[in-house]
């Protein structure tokens, strides 16, 4: 049976046909055309030969050390992190064991090496520690008990002094207070004039007061 496939169309599908990548129905049509066309048959053989040649071309060898370089890049940081974790865990376990061992065996070792009894040394250490801890607040309490009343009195005095100018101003508002003020001021001036020491002669009340 002669197919209607042209050589042009056949040629376009020949490589896929040689690779077995065509749909079965299309492949059957191709086969019919190839049965009748020597030129397309020769072309098919040629494509098959090219495919065979391409498949057998030698490649290049794997570069040496590729696997190690990849592993170093990928697993290296993880390996280092794992190593660090393990070392930390080992150090922690060792310090724990040393602490427990020290507590358990120190009395025997102390006796063996002629060191003071660890129990009494520990008690002394705790005692001195507690003493020093108590001494500081004790000293502070004494200081506070001494200075606190003085400071309180000073504060009160300052408060009282602060209110004096205000009281004076208030009192001067009434006419009686103003009259008393004028009288007090006059009395003060009179006393000053009476009692001031003379520059020309010695004696008088002023000099007597100064002599006292």
């Amino acid at each position: 049976m002669k197919s209607n496939l042209t050589c042009d169309a056949c040629e376009r599908e020949l490589v896929a046909y040689a690779d077995g990548a065509l749909h079965a129905a299309v492949a059957r049509v191709m086969e019919q055309h190839l049965d009748d066309c020597a030129r397309c048959r020769a072309s098919l053989e040629f494509h098959r030969a090219i495919a065979g040649r391409l498949a057998t071309l030698p490649g290049i060898p794997v570069p040496p050390g590729l696997e190690e370089r990849v592993l170093r890049a990928v697993a290296g940081p993880r390996r280092a992190a794992l190593r660090w974790k393990r070392a930390s865990a080992a150090a922690l376990a060792a310090s724990f064991a040393a602490t427990i061992g020290g507590i358990a065996f120190w009395p025997r070792l102390a006796a063996l090496w002629g060191l003071p009894d660890p129990a009494s040394a520990l008690a002394r250490g705790i005692d001195s520690g507690v003493e020093s801890m108590i001494a500081i607040p004790k000293r502070l309490a004494v200081d506070v008990a001494f200075y606190e009343p003085i400071v309180r009195q000073v504060c009160r005095s300052l408060d009282a002094l602060g209110s004096v100018p205000h009281a004076v101003l208030l009192s001067l508002r009434s006419p009686e207070a103003q009259a008393a003020g004028v009288m007090l001021l006059s009395l003060g001036v009179a006393l000053y004039l009476l009692l001031r020491p003379s520059t020309r002669k010695e004696g008088g009340i002023g000099h007597a007061c100064l002599a006292l």
Partner: peptide
């Protein structure tokens, strides 16, 4: 890590080529 090596060994030739 052994699986890493297996994977690299299985595909290194084809990938390089």
């Amino acid at each position: 890590e052994r699986a890493y090596r297996e994977l690299v060994r299985a595909y290194q030739g084809p990938v390089v080529n």
